[in-house]
């Protein structure tokens, strides 16, 4: 690379890093700052009290557990239903295959606000309101199409001879899926998990409407902290805590994150 190219990149990515990291820096900074006066402490002083309070409050701790529960369930559902579907699209041609793919895309394009009303009535009838299963299910409307899309491109990258050899070796279909296919596309599973997580963990509209009295997710717990005298330090500490699983996910998929979207035309 030329010296000019290097300087250009250093400047561009330096500015990009500044733009992206500035709000995070602000958040972390405030999370370690005392923002409401308390006995024996001055506001503005560096403190760990905000984190101590997140840890001590059962509603905040509980919300982390609620979010983790439905996100894990959602990821499990998307993989369980998405893997066979992705395998079908990657390995076979069948009547209507292109139409089904387009229909799946159309569902991903449905705005969550559009679905919120009927989903609430429908799920109330089945006892899925205030229930982590409900949120896990409704997030599938958005995550399942994406999961099928990512998994399909990873499966298609594995040569078909690989499947055939496994079947000749005497693997059953389920044995092949668990012992051969899943290990072969492990990075694809990782990327799928990441993108399911990224939607399910941070989505607000549907998660709010489906948790009326119990099972509040982390997003709603943060909203509830805003009030007449908002302890912004506590809000920021809770935000930082909510970022930890996501940052860990980015770290795990860092080498494969851009590989799931190669679209064969």
């Amino acid at each position: 690379m030329s010296a000019r190219g290097l300087t250009l990149r250093a400047v561009v990515f330096g500015l990009l890093a500044l733009f992206i990291l500035l709000p995070f820096a602000q958040t972390v900074l405030l999370s370690f700052t005392l923002t409401l006066p308390r006995e024996g402490h001055v506001t503005g002083a560096p403190t760990l009290l905000n984190y101590a309070e997140v840890w001590a409050r059962p509603d905040l701790r509980g919300s982390i557990l609620n979010s983790l529960t439905y996100v894990t369930l959602n990821i499990a559902l998307c993989l369980a239903a998405g893997l066979p579907a992705a395998y079908a699209f990657a390995r076979y041609r069948f009547t209507g295959d292109r139409h089904v793919l387009f229909a799946l895309l159309a569902f991903r394009l449905t705005p969550p606000v559009v679905l919120s009303l009927p989903v609430f009535f429908l799920f109330a009838r089945f006892g899925l309101v205030n229930n982590p299963v409900g949120i896990a299910l409704v997030h599938c409307a958005f995550n399942l199409p994406v999961a099928i899309w990512i998994l399909e491109s990873f499966i298609a990258a594995v040569p078909r001879e690989y499947d055939e050899t496994c079947f000749i070796d005497g693997h059953s279909l389920s044995g092949f899926f668990f012992k051969r296919l899943i290990p072969a596309i492990a990075p694809g599973i990782g990327v799928t998990v990441f993108f399911c997580f990224v939607f399910s963990w941070v989505e607000v509209v549907l998660a709010r409407i489906l948790t009326v009295t119990a099972g509040k997710p982390i997003t709603m717990a943060i909203n509830a902290l805003y009030g007449f005298r908002t302890d912004i330090g506590l809000v920021m500490a809770m935000t930082v805590v909510s970022l930890i699983p996501g940052v860990a996910m980015i770290w795990f998929v860092r080498n494969h994150i851009a590989r799931g979207f190669v679209i064969r035309t």
């Binding site: 559902l77 369980a80 239903a81 998405g82 066979p84 579907a85 395998y87 079908a88 990657a90 390995r91 076979y92 041609r93 069948f94 009547t95 295959d97 089904v100 799946l104 569902f107 449905t110 559009v114 679905l115 009303l117 009927p118 989903v119 009535f121 429908l122 299910l137 409704v138 599938c140 409307a141 399942l144 199409p145 099928i148 078909r160």
Partner: peptide, 30 residues
């Protein structure tokens, strides 16, 4: 190219079942 097999539809059943419940029925309801 991939073989033609309408049996592959069976592999779509779980995905279509979920999408039917969380996307198609609510859209019809709206």
């Amino acid at each position: 190219s991939n073989p033609h097999s309408n049996g592959a539809w069976l592999l779509l059943v779980p995905a279509l079942g979920i999408m039917g419940f969380v996307a198609v029925i609510p859209l019809v309801a709206v």
